[in-house]
Structures are given as C-alpha cells and as structure tokens.
C-alpha cells in the first residue's frame, strides 16, 4: 500500500512499548456504541457501528480513507447526531448531546485537521482549551504542563496559531486537548504531518498519559503499525462497517489487516 511513503520503515521497531497495565474489560464500558448509524445528508457514513472502550484502555481505530473513522469520533463527541443506535458514556445516554456538553463530561477531542484557532495566540489556544476550568491557577499549571510536553509551544507562546507550522499546530491541538486532563481522549490522526521524531514523541505522550493518568484513549491513525503497538484493543473499519475487532496484538498479526493497512505486500 501507499503507507511506506509517509512512514519510515524503522518506525515499527522504535514504537513505544505497549502499556503494561491490563485494563479491566469485564465490567461495564466507559464508552459504548451500539449499532450506530450516522449520515451526512444522504450519505450513509456509519452503518451500524458497535464499539466499546473501557476505563484505562488505549483503543485503536484503523481503516482506509473514507472508512468512517472521523465520523465515528464526531458522533461520539457530539459534533454530529447519530440517526439511530445507542451511545453511552459514563453510564449516560449522550446520543445527540451537543459537543459543548459532552466536553464538559471529561471528554476531549483532537479533531481531524487540527482546527487551531488561527487568530488566537498559542497561549490563548491553550487557555480556550481550558474553557471549562474556572480556577486560574489550575489553568496556568496546565499551560505549563503543555509547555513541558511540547517545549516548542513555549518558544512560540505569543505567536498566532494560524502562523504555526503544520506540525507545530498538531502539537498545539494535542496540548489544547490535554488542558482539561480528560478521562476520555479522542485522537484523530495525531501523528499527521509530524516528522518521525515527533511522531514517536506523540506516541510516548499517549502511553504516558494512559499509564500516569489512566486516561482512556480512542486513537484513529493512518500509522496503523504504531497505533497497534501501543493499543490494548483495536477495531478495523471498512466503508462504514466494523470489520474486525480484538486484541491489538492479534489484529496486528491478522493476514488481511497486514495486507490492507500495514503495508505488507
């Protein structure tokens, strides 16, 4: 497949080791999608998606272009309404709840294409990310944490978001989503546009967040090798349908998956 052009061949071996902790997946899930159907006008983008994420898990969502990965994240965060199906988060039915409400329930979504506020400075972008926090001291602490994760952002603190490079904007988008210390983090291609060194840094951060804060992560990635290397479980989407699911290590070994998404000939 075309993956090899965007992905240095050394990456799979340098990928961070998966989280050693094994999340408990016997009880009730933190996030649960049951037979979700979502549409863009007449385009039937999700055709009955069923998915679960348990507290403390890293769940990878892989699939080709147009498979519905972004749509799945959008539906979860409330950017769009599912037409039918069930959507529960922390035991609450959130189907059709607007994004600003679900985000107040400890969810963060790094959207596809970064969506940095172009006319806000780097610092202001981070502060807006902390909009739901009113404690100024805590906001400042989180801004500093963000700077610690991405020192580049500190150097560019007062630069307008729109004038940052693509990779810098990606860092800012992730740092912005972490401002609220989310319980559930939805990441839509966080490695997009980053140099191999930074891709690794991003994956390290995801693993660290998961280990240190027990953050649940739903990770959409074109970089499927690396995503599967750090995930506990994975789902494979194809043209709006859930094709396969299971332990990330099993999915990574699956013949058809290797052929379609992992660049095997």
């Amino acid at each position: 497949m075309t993956q090899s052009t965007t992905q240095p061949s050394t990456q799979p071996t340098t990928a961070p080791t998966p989280s050693q902790t094994t999340p408990d997946i016997s009880g009730s899930a933190m996030l649960e999608l049951g037979d979700i159907h979502s549409y863009y006008d007449h385009i039937h983008a999700l055709k009955g998606i069923t998915l679960k994420a348990y507290e403390g898990e890293i769940v990878a969502l892989i699939g080709g272009n147009g498979a519905g990965k972004t749509t799945t994240l959008r539906t979860i965060s409330g950017m769009m309404k599912p037409r039918t199906g069930t959507l529960t988060y922390l035991g609450e039915d959130i189907a059709g709840k607007p994004a600003h409400k679900t985000m107040q329930m400890g969810m963060s979504h790094v959207p596809e294409g970064r969506r940095i506020f172009p006319q806000l400075s780097v610092r202001e972008n981070l502060e807006v990310g902390a909009y739901t926090i009113t404690d100024r001291k805590l906001i400042e602490e989180r801004v500093q944490e963000g700077f610690a994760y991405f020192p580049r952002l500190k150097e560019r603190e007062n630069q307008l978001g729109g004038t940052m490079s693509g990779g810098e904007q990606q860092m800012l988008a992730i740092a912005r989503a972490l401002m609220v210390n989310p319980r559930l983090l939805l990441l839509d291609e966080p490695s997009m546009g980053l140099s191999p060194l930074f891709v690794e840094a991003i994956f390290d951060i995801i693993v660290k967040l998961n280990k240190d804060h027990n953050t649940t992560v739903l990770l959409v990635e074109q970089n499927a090798n690396m995503a599967l290397a750090i995930a506990h479980r994975a789902y494979v989407l194809q043209t709006g349908e859930m094709k396969l699911s299971g332990k990330a290590s099993d999915i990574a070994k699956d013949e058809s998956v290797r052929k379609a998404y992992l660049g095997d000939e």
């Binding site: 409330g78 950017m79 607007p98 600003h100 107040q104 969506r115 506020f117 806000l120 807006v128 909009y131």
Partner: peptide, 24 residues
C-alpha cells in the same frame, strides 16, 4: 477575559469552539 476569548474562538471556528466546551 474568558468570555472574550470564548467569543473570539466562536467567531473563528464555531464547531471547534464547541469541542472546547464553549456553548456557541
């Protein structure tokens, strides 16, 4: 102010402002 930043965020990108928990 926090209000001003939120208003500016909404004027630049209403959808993404929603993802920040801002009621546009």
């Amino acid at each position: 102010t926090r209000l001003g930043k939120a208003i500016r965020a909404v004027s630049q990108d209403r959808v993404t402002a929603g993802l920040m928990g801002i009621d546009s």
